[in-house]
């Protein structure tokens, strides 16, 4: 990896962190734990279409780790990591099928997988099956949020990769 790519990835990590921290300041609209826009995912989706999977993974996991440290919520780290790993794996696989005109779909599936990962960890931590009752609510919000961030990522990727 040359210095130029490394610098770019560093800047993108920084950008994702800033978006992540600003989003924490937005008050919750729905009182369901886990419902959020996930704006930082725009950067991840852009990376998947611009960098190699290994480089994207480096960016994503530095962001998750630093994000948990900065927000002071280490409990949320496990949920973020589980969601992040599932979401990343699914998006890398889908990257082969979805071309640059269908980036939004990648983001929707990413959001859905993220929610499934989170709920799975919650079920393990709480040793309770009932928590799965949150999943359908999270899936609907995840689809809408994923669509929104996906369309944003699609526009950004199209314009940035033109030159």
């Amino acid at each position: 990896m040359d210095v130029k790519r490394l610098t770019k990835l560093g800047l993108l990590t920084c950008l994702a962190l800033i978006i992540f921290i600003i989003e924490l300041r937005i008050p919750d609209i729905v009182p369901i734990p886990g419902v959020k826009l996930g704006l930082a995912n725009i950067v991840t989706v852009y990376c998947i279409y611009t960098f190699t999977p290994a480089e994207t993974a480096m960016m994503l996991f530095s962001r998750i780790l630093l994000g948990a440290l900065f927000s002071g919520n280490l409990m949320a780290l496990w949920y973020s990591i589980a969601g992040g790993v599932l979401c990343f794996a699914g998006m890398v696989l889908l990257r082969r099928i979805a071309d640059e005109k269908n980036i939004w779909f990648l983001s929707v599936i990413g959001a859905v997988l993220h929610n499934i990962g989170q709920i799975t960890v919650a079920m393990i931590v709480l040793k309770s099956k009932t928590v799965i009752g949150y999943l359908p609510f999270l899936l609907i919000s995840g689809c809408i949020a994923g669509l929104f961030t996906g369309i944003s990522a699609q526009l950004i990727t199209k314009r940035l990769n033109k030159n």
Binding site: P33, M75, V125, L126, K127
Partner: peptide
Amino acid sequence: CPDHICIETGRLRPDTPIVCLPNRLV
């Protein structure tokens, strides 16, 4: 706990449980 999500959930409804993740309470 730091987030108070369980308090914001409001009253218990039949569809979803009240969950306090940091204190492992359902």
